[in-house]
Protein backbone atom coordinates (compact mmCIF):
# COMPACT_ATOMS: atom_id res chain seq x y z
CA UNK A 1 0.00 0.00 0.00
CA UNK A 2 2.62 2.51 1.08
CA UNK A 3 6.34 2.28 0.69
CA UNK A 4 8.68 4.67 2.42
CA UNK A 5 12.27 4.49 1.28
CA UNK A 6 15.28 6.20 2.82
CA UNK A 7 13.31 9.21 3.90
CA UNK A 8 15.35 12.13 5.20
CA UNK A 9 14.13 15.58 6.13
CA UNK A 10 16.30 18.53 7.03
CA UNK A 11 15.04 21.70 8.61
CA UNK A 12 18.00 23.89 7.86
CA UNK A 13 20.85 22.29 9.76
CA UNK A 14 18.56 20.20 11.92
CA UNK A 15 17.73 16.74 10.77
CA UNK A 16 14.17 15.92 11.71
CA UNK A 17 14.06 12.50 10.12
CA UNK A 18 17.08 10.44 9.17
CA UNK A 19 17.02 7.78 6.49
CA UNK A 20 13.92 5.89 7.54
CA UNK A 21 12.29 3.13 5.52
CA UNK A 22 9.23 1.05 6.22
CA UNK A 23 6.07 -0.06 4.53
CA UNK A 24 2.40 -0.14 5.34
CA UNK A 25 0.63 -3.23 4.10
CA UNK A 26 -2.91 -3.50 2.83
CA UNK A 27 -5.55 -3.47 5.53
CA UNK A 28 -3.02 -3.12 8.28
CA UNK A 29 -2.92 -0.85 11.28
CA UNK A 30 0.61 0.34 11.77
CA UNK A 31 1.44 2.06 15.03
CA UNK A 32 3.89 4.89 14.92
CA UNK A 33 5.38 5.34 18.31
CA UNK A 34 7.83 7.79 19.71
CA UNK A 35 8.27 10.48 22.31
CA UNK A 36 7.34 14.05 21.46
CA UNK A 37 9.68 15.63 18.96
CA UNK A 38 10.85 12.28 17.62
CA UNK A 39 9.85 13.11 14.04
CA UNK A 40 6.45 11.42 13.97
CA UNK A 41 4.51 14.40 12.68
CA UNK A 42 7.19 15.30 10.18
CA UNK A 43 7.13 11.80 8.76
CA UNK A 44 3.35 11.80 8.55
CA UNK A 45 3.33 15.20 6.90
CA UNK A 46 5.71 13.86 4.29
CA UNK A 47 3.64 10.74 3.67
CA UNK A 48 0.52 12.88 3.30
CA UNK A 49 2.31 15.10 0.79
CA UNK A 50 2.19 18.25 2.88
CA UNK A 51 5.95 18.55 3.25
CA UNK A 52 8.35 17.34 0.60
CA UNK A 53 11.20 15.17 1.80
CA UNK A 54 14.82 16.23 1.47
CA UNK A 55 15.74 12.77 0.26
CA UNK A 56 13.96 9.49 -0.28
CA UNK A 57 10.66 8.50 -1.79
CA UNK A 58 7.14 7.79 -0.65
CA UNK A 59 4.89 5.70 -2.85
CA UNK A 60 1.21 5.55 -2.05
CA UNK A 61 -0.92 3.03 -3.89
CA UNK A 62 1.69 2.91 -6.63
CA UNK A 63 1.92 6.69 -7.09
CA UNK A 64 4.88 8.77 -6.01
CA UNK A 65 3.77 11.47 -3.60
CA UNK A 66 5.79 14.24 -5.24
CA UNK A 67 5.82 13.10 -8.87
CA UNK A 68 2.18 12.05 -9.16
CA UNK A 69 0.91 14.10 -6.24
CA UNK A 70 -2.68 14.49 -7.32
CA UNK A 71 -3.20 10.77 -7.96
CA UNK A 72 -1.46 9.74 -4.76
CA UNK A 73 -3.35 12.25 -2.64
CA UNK A 74 -6.67 10.89 -3.84
CA UNK A 75 -6.01 7.74 -1.86
CA UNK A 76 -5.00 9.50 1.36
CA UNK A 77 -7.14 10.71 4.22
CA UNK A 78 -5.16 12.75 6.67
CA UNK A 79 -5.93 13.89 10.18
CA UNK A 80 -3.06 16.19 11.19
CA UNK A 81 -2.07 16.96 14.75
CA UNK A 82 -4.22 20.09 14.76
CA UNK A 83 -7.58 19.25 13.18
CA UNK A 84 -7.74 21.34 9.99
CA UNK A 85 -11.15 22.87 10.52
CA UNK A 86 -12.52 26.31 9.72
CA UNK A 87 -13.98 27.86 12.86
CA UNK A 88 -16.44 29.95 10.85
CA UNK A 89 -18.09 27.00 9.15
CA UNK A 90 -20.85 24.72 10.31
CA UNK A 91 -20.01 21.05 10.66
CA UNK A 92 -22.06 19.82 7.73
CA UNK A 93 -21.05 22.71 5.53
CA UNK A 94 -17.40 21.96 6.29
CA UNK A 95 -17.82 18.28 5.51
CA UNK A 96 -19.43 19.09 2.19
CA UNK A 97 -16.66 21.50 1.37
CA UNK A 98 -13.99 18.89 2.07
CA UNK A 99 -15.89 16.32 0.00
CA UNK A 100 -15.85 18.78 -2.90
CA UNK A 101 -12.18 19.53 -2.30
CA UNK A 102 -11.38 15.83 -2.53
CA UNK A 103 -13.30 15.49 -5.74
CA UNK A 104 -16.12 13.31 -4.45
CA UNK A 105 -18.75 13.06 -7.16
CA UNK A 106 -21.69 15.34 -6.64
CA UNK A 107 -24.22 12.54 -6.33
CA UNK A 108 -22.21 10.83 -3.60
CA UNK A 109 -21.40 13.83 -1.44
CA UNK A 110 -24.45 13.67 0.79
CA UNK A 111 -24.19 9.93 1.36
CA UNK A 112 -20.50 10.08 2.19
CA UNK A 113 -20.86 13.07 4.48
CA UNK A 114 -23.71 11.35 6.29
CA UNK A 115 -21.87 8.10 6.80
CA UNK A 116 -18.69 9.83 7.99
CA UNK A 117 -20.64 11.96 10.46
CA UNK A 118 -22.52 8.89 11.58
CA UNK A 119 -19.32 6.99 12.22
CA UNK A 120 -17.91 9.69 14.47
CA UNK A 121 -21.22 10.52 16.13
CA UNK A 122 -21.27 14.14 15.09
CA UNK A 123 -24.57 14.08 13.23
CA UNK A 124 -26.23 15.95 16.09
CA UNK A 125 -23.70 18.73 15.68
CA UNK A 126 -24.25 19.30 11.99
CA UNK A 127 -25.73 22.77 12.40
CA UNK A 128 -23.20 23.94 14.97
CA UNK A 129 -20.42 26.37 14.18
CA UNK A 130 -17.11 24.60 14.51
CA UNK A 131 -15.70 27.43 16.63
CA UNK A 132 -18.27 26.56 19.32
CA UNK A 133 -17.36 22.88 19.47
CA UNK A 134 -15.26 21.39 22.24
CA UNK A 135 -11.77 20.15 21.49
CA UNK A 136 -12.94 16.55 21.38
CA UNK A 137 -15.63 17.34 18.86
CA UNK A 138 -13.25 19.35 16.71
CA UNK A 139 -10.97 16.34 16.74
CA UNK A 140 -13.84 14.15 15.61
CA UNK A 141 -14.80 16.52 12.82
CA UNK A 142 -11.17 16.38 11.71
CA UNK A 143 -11.31 12.58 11.80
CA UNK A 144 -14.60 12.46 9.89
CA UNK A 145 -13.08 14.71 7.24
CA UNK A 146 -10.28 12.19 6.69
CA UNK A 147 -12.81 9.49 5.81
CA UNK A 148 -14.33 11.48 2.94
CA UNK A 149 -13.55 10.27 -0.54
CA UNK A 150 -13.05 6.77 0.78
CA UNK A 151 -9.25 6.92 0.78
CA UNK A 152 -7.38 3.64 0.95
CA UNK A 153 -4.82 5.01 3.35
CA UNK A 154 -5.67 6.82 6.55
CA UNK A 155 -2.96 8.83 8.26
CA UNK A 156 -3.97 9.67 11.79
CA UNK A 157 -1.67 11.88 13.82
CA UNK A 158 -2.53 11.31 17.47
CA UNK A 159 -6.25 10.85 16.84
CA UNK A 160 -7.19 10.44 20.49
CA UNK A 161 -5.60 13.59 21.89
CA UNK A 162 -8.17 15.74 23.61
CA UNK A 163 -10.79 13.03 23.91
CA UNK A 164 -12.19 11.76 27.18
CA UNK A 165 -11.65 8.09 28.11
CA UNK A 166 -15.02 6.95 26.79
CA UNK A 167 -14.41 8.65 23.48
CA UNK A 168 -10.90 7.24 23.33
CA UNK A 169 -12.18 3.70 23.47
CA UNK A 170 -14.84 4.61 20.92
CA UNK A 171 -12.21 5.91 18.53
CA UNK A 172 -10.11 2.79 19.08
CA UNK A 173 -13.07 0.65 18.16
CA UNK A 174 -13.63 2.79 15.11
CA UNK A 175 -10.02 2.39 14.01
CA UNK A 176 -10.28 -1.38 14.36
CA UNK A 177 -13.48 -1.26 12.36
CA UNK A 178 -11.95 0.88 9.62
CA UNK A 179 -9.25 -1.73 9.11
CA UNK A 180 -11.64 -3.69 6.90
CA UNK A 181 -11.46 -1.15 4.09
CA UNK A 182 -8.40 0.93 4.83
CA UNK A 183 -4.74 0.74 5.63
CA UNK A 184 -4.03 2.88 8.64
CA UNK A 185 -0.94 4.51 10.01
CA UNK A 186 -1.55 5.95 13.38
CA UNK A 187 0.83 7.78 15.66
CA UNK A 188 0.77 8.04 19.38
CA UNK A 189 2.96 8.49 22.37
CA UNK A 190 0.58 6.44 24.47
CA UNK A 191 1.71 2.84 24.52
CA UNK A 192 -1.46 1.27 25.78
CA UNK A 193 -3.25 2.70 22.78
CA UNK A 194 -0.79 1.32 20.31
CA UNK A 195 -0.75 -2.15 21.82
CA UNK A 196 -4.54 -2.17 21.92
CA UNK A 197 -5.00 -1.35 18.26
CA UNK A 198 -1.96 -2.08 16.16
CA UNK A 199 -0.45 -5.25 14.83
CA UNK A 200 2.89 -3.80 13.92
CA UNK A 201 4.77 -0.96 15.50
CA UNK A 202 7.43 1.40 14.26
CA UNK A 203 9.32 2.94 17.13
CA UNK A 204 11.05 6.16 16.26
CA UNK A 205 13.24 8.43 18.32
CA UNK A 206 15.31 11.46 17.35
CA UNK A 207 14.37 10.96 13.71
CA UNK A 208 15.63 7.40 13.49
CA UNK A 209 13.79 4.11 13.48
CA UNK A 210 14.64 2.11 16.55
CA UNK A 211 12.51 -0.92 15.88
CA UNK A 212 9.90 -2.25 13.46
CA UNK A 213 8.11 -5.42 14.40
CA UNK A 214 4.94 -6.94 15.69
CA UNK A 215 4.19 -6.23 19.30
CA UNK A 216 4.75 -9.86 20.36
CA UNK A 217 8.08 -10.06 18.60
CA UNK A 218 9.24 -6.84 20.14
CA UNK A 219 8.41 -8.05 23.60
CA UNK A 220 10.07 -11.38 22.93
CA UNK A 221 13.24 -10.06 21.35
CA UNK A 222 13.79 -7.62 24.14
CA UNK A 223 13.54 -10.36 26.70
CA UNK A 224 16.25 -12.42 25.01
CA UNK A 225 18.31 -11.29 27.92
CA UNK A 226 16.40 -12.97 30.69
CA UNK A 227 15.48 -10.75 33.58
CA UNK A 228 15.03 -12.10 37.03
CA UNK A 229 13.00 -10.46 39.76
CA UNK A 230 14.76 -11.35 42.98
CA UNK A 231 13.90 -10.59 46.59
CA UNK A 232 16.55 -11.43 49.15
CA UNK A 233 16.91 -10.96 52.91
CA UNK A 234 20.31 -9.68 54.01
CA UNK A 235 23.06 -7.18 53.48
CA UNK A 236 22.90 -5.44 50.10
CA UNK A 237 26.62 -5.06 49.38
CA UNK A 238 27.21 -8.69 50.09
CA UNK A 239 24.29 -9.78 47.95
CA UNK A 240 25.34 -7.64 45.02
CA UNK A 241 28.93 -8.93 45.25
CA UNK A 242 27.73 -12.52 45.23
CA UNK A 243 25.33 -11.91 42.36
CA UNK A 244 28.00 -10.23 40.28
CA UNK A 245 30.40 -13.08 40.90
CA UNK A 246 28.08 -15.58 39.31
CA UNK A 247 29.11 -16.21 35.73
CA UNK A 248 26.38 -15.26 33.23
CA UNK A 249 25.01 -12.33 35.19
CA UNK A 250 25.25 -9.22 33.03
CA UNK A 251 23.64 -6.60 35.19
CA UNK A 252 22.34 -6.14 38.72
CA UNK A 253 20.01 -3.28 39.51
CA UNK A 254 20.22 -1.03 42.54
CA UNK A 255 18.61 -2.65 45.56
CA UNK A 256 15.16 -1.47 46.42
CA UNK A 257 14.13 -1.80 50.07
CA UNK A 258 10.75 -3.43 50.42
CA UNK A 259 10.85 -4.44 54.06
CA UNK A 260 13.13 -4.70 57.05
CA UNK A 261 16.42 -6.07 55.75
CA UNK A 262 14.61 -7.21 52.64
CA UNK A 263 15.57 -5.98 49.22
CA UNK A 264 14.39 -6.34 45.65
CA UNK A 265 16.82 -6.62 42.74
CA UNK A 266 16.46 -6.96 39.01
CA UNK A 267 19.12 -9.22 37.58
CA UNK A 268 19.84 -9.61 33.91
CA UNK A 269 21.06 -13.03 32.85
CA UNK A 270 22.70 -14.28 29.68
CA UNK A 271 20.52 -17.35 29.70
CA UNK A 272 17.93 -18.93 31.88
CA UNK A 273 20.00 -21.78 33.50
CA UNK A 274 22.17 -19.17 35.26
CA UNK A 275 19.24 -18.90 37.63
CA UNK A 276 20.19 -22.16 39.32
CA UNK A 277 23.72 -20.96 39.95
CA UNK A 278 22.41 -17.77 41.51
CA UNK A 279 20.22 -19.79 43.77
CA UNK A 280 23.01 -22.06 44.97
CA UNK A 281 25.40 -19.12 45.40
CA UNK A 282 22.92 -17.26 47.57
CA UNK A 283 22.07 -20.33 49.61
CA UNK A 284 25.76 -21.14 50.10
CA UNK A 285 26.25 -17.69 51.57
CA UNK A 286 23.27 -18.08 53.85
CA UNK A 287 21.17 -15.39 52.28
CA UNK A 288 17.46 -16.05 52.37
CA UNK A 289 15.68 -16.04 49.02
CA UNK A 290 12.20 -14.70 49.51
CA UNK A 291 11.05 -14.59 45.95
CA UNK A 292 12.46 -15.32 42.52
CA UNK A 293 10.58 -14.95 39.28
CA UNK A 294 11.15 -14.41 35.58
CA UNK A 295 10.22 -10.98 34.37
CA UNK A 296 8.76 -10.15 30.98
CA UNK A 297 9.32 -6.73 29.47
CA UNK A 298 6.14 -4.91 28.76
CA UNK A 299 5.87 -2.82 25.64
CA UNK A 300 6.51 0.13 27.86
CA UNK A 301 9.87 -1.20 28.88
CA UNK A 302 10.66 -2.15 25.31
CA UNK A 303 9.90 1.39 24.33
CA UNK A 304 12.11 2.76 27.06
CA UNK A 305 14.85 0.42 26.11
CA UNK A 306 14.89 1.30 22.46
CA UNK A 307 14.52 5.00 22.98
CA UNK A 308 16.89 5.41 25.86
CA UNK A 309 20.14 6.95 24.82
CA UNK A 310 20.53 10.07 26.86
CA UNK A 311 21.92 7.99 29.71
CA UNK A 312 19.60 9.68 32.13
CA UNK A 313 17.62 7.51 34.46
CA UNK A 314 13.92 7.68 34.06
CA UNK A 315 11.57 6.23 36.52
CA UNK A 316 8.66 5.90 34.17
CA UNK A 317 7.63 6.40 30.61
CA UNK A 318 5.81 9.55 31.52
CA UNK A 319 9.13 11.13 32.54
CA UNK A 320 10.46 10.35 29.13
CA UNK A 321 7.49 11.93 27.47
CA UNK A 322 7.62 14.98 29.68
CA UNK A 323 11.28 15.41 29.05
CA UNK A 324 11.04 16.83 25.58
CA UNK A 325 7.98 18.99 25.51
CA UNK A 326 7.25 19.64 21.89
CA UNK A 327 6.68 23.24 20.99
CA UNK A 328 3.21 23.45 19.51
CA UNK A 329 3.53 23.75 15.76
CA UNK A 330 1.29 26.70 15.79
CA UNK A 331 1.45 28.98 18.80
CA UNK A 332 -1.53 30.99 17.61
CA UNK A 333 -3.83 28.07 17.67
CA UNK A 334 -4.96 28.55 21.21
CA UNK A 335 -8.57 27.83 20.39
Amino acid sequence: MVEIKNLTKHYGKNIAVRNISFEIRDNEILGFLGPNGAGKSTTMNIIAGYLPSTEGTVTVNGFDITEQASEAKKSIGYLPEIPPVYPDMRVEEYMKFVAGLKGVRRGEVSAQVESAMERLHISDMRRRLIRNLSKGYKQRVGFAQALLGNPKLLILDEPTVGLDPAQVSEVRKLILDLKKDHSIIFSSHILAEVSAVCERVVIINKGEIKAIDTIENLERSMTANTILDLTVDGDTTKTIRILKDVRGVTKVSEPEAIGENRYHYQVELESEPVRNEIMSALVANQLGIVEMSMAKLSLEQVFLKVTENSGKKRSSLQDLLDETPEAPENPYDAE
Partner: peptide
Protein backbone atom coordinates in the same frame (compact mmCIF):
# COMPACT_ATOMS: atom_id res chain seq x y z
CA UNK B 1 -1.61 29.01 7.85
CA UNK B 2 -2.62 30.30 11.23
CA UNK B 3 -5.55 27.92 11.62
CA UNK B 4 -3.65 24.87 10.38
CA UNK B 5 -6.10 24.41 7.51
CA UNK B 6 -3.32 24.91 5.00
CA UNK B 7 -2.55 21.22 5.57
CA UNK B 8 -6.03 20.31 4.39
CA UNK B 9 -5.64 22.24 1.15
CA UNK B 10 -2.12 21.09 0.41
CA UNK B 11 -2.88 17.44 1.08
CA UNK B 12 -5.99 17.52 -1.07
CA UNK B 13 -5.72 16.46 -4.70
CA UNK B 14 -5.77 20.14 -5.72
CA UNK B 15 -2.51 21.53 -7.05
Amino acid sequence: RKGGTEVLLLTSPLS
